[in-house]
Design a protein around this nucleic acid. Structure first.
Lengths: 189, 189
DNA sequence: AATGTTACTTACTTCTATGTAAGTAAGCGA
DNA sequence: TCGCTTACTTACATAGAAGTAAGTAACATT
């Protein structure tokens, strides 16, 4: 039972890795089965449909994001954004991955409704949090940019996934310059 | 022969539409065949491999981009960028499409090397042009932003595809606000 | 000890995308 | 008119992904 949970979790973890690296439709159960040295059908035992695994991956990613913002809550708004940027750094470094919402938004018209809803809700959580953090930074005087918090949050929501996608092709110099530009754009004091 | 060229062009046009809407791997020859009321294998007559059609779509898109920038060359740098933003407006309005480099960068680890090279070269053309236009705008005093032309170009390269992807999920209010923010960020005089 | 549950495997079905081989009908060029 | 090319069609081959049905071995529960 303990190892059962282990396998179940490993499947989600591997699934997430494949989704972020090659995309939801490009990954398949055989790749996970091979990596875990079990059979294809064993994955179906835990996640009968690929959609089920997809939903579990989204849920896990969302949980991790929520944990991250909980850890940085009530602190310096800059710390929260730095933690987020660190995530993106890791995505890029570790195999030129994309972020989860980036992949699902790209493949949006090619996934089931349940997956659309789950990823849309997750995106909403991120966008709402971004706006709150930008607002908090502005109100506390920690940030000093000249557009609205909402506008800055919207820009970040587009540029973060975009930089991973363009960066995986243009190279790391490109990616890190965009990350740097994001940091500077806050005009922190 | 005239209608032959017609069919050949219609295939590329339809292929491009499907790629921008649902992605390279989600579209298939049957969809195009049905739309043109011909048989599956007829597409193979013009484009033996799907990769061939993919390359033709990239080439066509690139040609259109090159034509666009040629039309706006030596003019106001703002006009060139406005023309580009108009393209993105149309992508969004017309079925929540993505842009071509956005889709191929997203699916980068899931397409053949030829397609990777072709889309990477196209992306390079765009990034180079963006940098030149930003530089021209700065030097002429038409733009007045406070970062380097290169940095601004890199930001645009990420935010443009990103805004289509996030916008197709977050909705049009989101998308148009980001477009608006891009315009304002140039600080035109 | 009997029963049920968990974690799988084996073996199969189904479906669909991709691609090929071979043929046909129409037109064009010499 | 002969022969070549163009623009297809019909029919087939292949591969791989997704999913299911049935069984087994080990362990837990009562």
């Amino acid at each position: 039972m303990d190892s059962a949970l282990h396998t179940r979790d490993k499947i989600v973890e591997l699934g997430r890795n494949y989704i972020l690296t090659i995309g939801y439709h490009a990954f398949n159960y055989k790749q996970i089965a091979t990596a875990l040295n079990i059979k294809n059908a064993a994955i179906h035992h835990y996640y009968p449909l690929k959609e089920d695994l997809g939903l579990a991956v989204i849920e896990k990613d969302r949980q991790e994001f929520v944990n991250m913002i909980r850890l940085t809550a009530n602190g310096d708004p800059l710390l929260g954004l730095e933690a987020l940027l660190d995530c993106y750094d890791r995505y890029f470094k570790d195999g030129h991955k994309l972020c989860l919402v980036g992949t699902f938004c790209s493949a949006y018209h090619d996934v089931s409704e349940k997956l659309q809803i789950a990823s849309a809700q997750y995106l909403n959580v991120i966008c709402t949090w971004l706006t709150e953090v930008m607002q908090a930074g502005l109100e506390s005087g920690r940030f000093n940019f000249e557009i609205t918090a909402q506008e800055m949050a919207n820009n970040w929501a587009a540029i973060l996934p975009g930089s991973l996608q363009i960066g995986r092709v243009q190279g790391e110099e490109y990616f890190y310059q965009v990350m740097d530009s994001l940091r500077k754009s806050l005009k922190t004091k």
